[in-house]
Design a protein around this nucleic acid. Structure first.
Lengths: 210, 210
DNA sequence: GGCGGGATCAACCTTTTGGTTGATGGCGGC
DNA sequence: GCCGCCATCAACCAAAAGGTTGATCCCGCC
């Protein structure tokens, strides 16, 4: 194994970047070589600097999303691996990050030791998932039949936006009966029995946009 | 002016605590004397240690909410002042913190200088609000007739969580008729005519937690 | 002391939703 | 070709939610 593991921190919060620096500085085999306050800057730095692992937030205040930056970085051959480090663990976020090529997914409340272990795993090409995240992925694999269809998700999103069945039927050029049918199926899959509960459950699972 | 400003950091994320420590350590007149990973511990430490300013997060993974801890700390005479430092800027959070007695409200994406300035202001008994927060409070003062009452917000939050009127009435020890009355008032204030639309509108305006 | 707003509840009625059953057509897999 | 899943629609009934009117109590304010 060659020298120290070279890290790039990508997070829009100065406090979080300082915290990561401080936490990672206690590990002698780590070296933080760059910081990025935006996703765009992270992509630039990842290809310009010699970096082994990128610690990537998903939500940036403005501009590119962390998942898009992850895709851009991992698309390059011989590029660094990307370890996602975020506050949220919704299905939508996790899936987006995994599909973008992230090698690991950590939550920001992780203790420092777990963080260090995940960075070493990522640098060695091994995957690193927070326990809560792993549980979510497992649950999704175990119960694939409960995934909402495209149309069901579309209808549910409009419900979350506050539309009535009739408004949804007009918006999607459907009969009100069809909207009701879709919703009844959604209720069954989510284990709820009202539109507001369905929206809450879908939000909690990250099935619709926040 | 007496000695250095003594600080207590209350946040459930180790990385954020380390970041605050690192950022505040660059100010020679600051001294971080304690850290708390839970709101309960923050209350204990705030009365046991000699502390001037508490930097308080609002959301803790489990247990007491930061606003409740703030209320408990500021209820004591000669206690420290509480400066709320959180990621969110919804009306509900801001109002809860202000009513709990917080002297300031900062967002975690604040640059270090702003953070330091706010701490000094708080220590001197002056209020410190992030610009986005101040804007929200102004907007609320300009349109007071449309502001939701405490009870209305409480009911609406439970609606957003997916509860039926009957479940809400049981949860809050109310009659179902009262829940309906509150909601009708909410619909009028928000300009909507259904519970799902009310939740969507309240979310868009930051009246309930995301 | 009155006035307004908040919080509480009741009765009544209309509209919307939820739940069920059933039916049609398309599409992909074994 | 048949089966399962998705998408579409209909009719019917029961339950929940929305809308109105009206009432009581308490509190802070001028």
């Amino acid at each position: 194994m060659s020298g120290r593991i070279r890290l790039l921190l990508a997070d829009d919060h100065p406090v979080v970047r300082a915290g990561l620096r401080a936490v990672l500085a206690t590990e002698p085999d780590f070296e933080v070589v760059a910081e990025a306050a935006t996703a765009e800057r992270a992509v630039t730095l990842a290809e310009r600097e010699h970096v082994d692992v990128v610690l990537m937030d998903l939500q940036f205040g403005t501009g590119m999303h962390g998942a898009d930056a992850t895709a851009a970085i991992t698309a390059r051959p011989d590029g660094p691996v990307v370890l996602v480090l975020t506050t949220y663990d919704t299905d939508a976020d996790i899936l987006a990050a995994v599909e973008a090529g992230a090698i690991g997914y950590l939550l920001k409340d992780a203790p420092p030791e777990e963080l260090a272990a995940a960075v070493r795993a990522a640098a060695a090409g091994r995957s690193a998932l927070a326990p809560a995240v792993a549980r979510r992925l497992m649950g999704r694999l175990r119960a694939p039949g409960t995934a909402l269809s495209r149309r069901e998700t579309e209808v549910l999103q409009l419900v979350a936006d506050g539309l009535s069945n009739q408004q949804i039927s007009r918006r999607l050029h459907l009969s009100p009966a069809t909207v009701k049918t879709h919703l009844v199926h959604v209720y069954g899959k989510l284990g709820v029995d009202s539109r507001t509960a369905a929206v809450a459950a879908a939000r909690a699972r990250g099935l619709i946009r926040p």
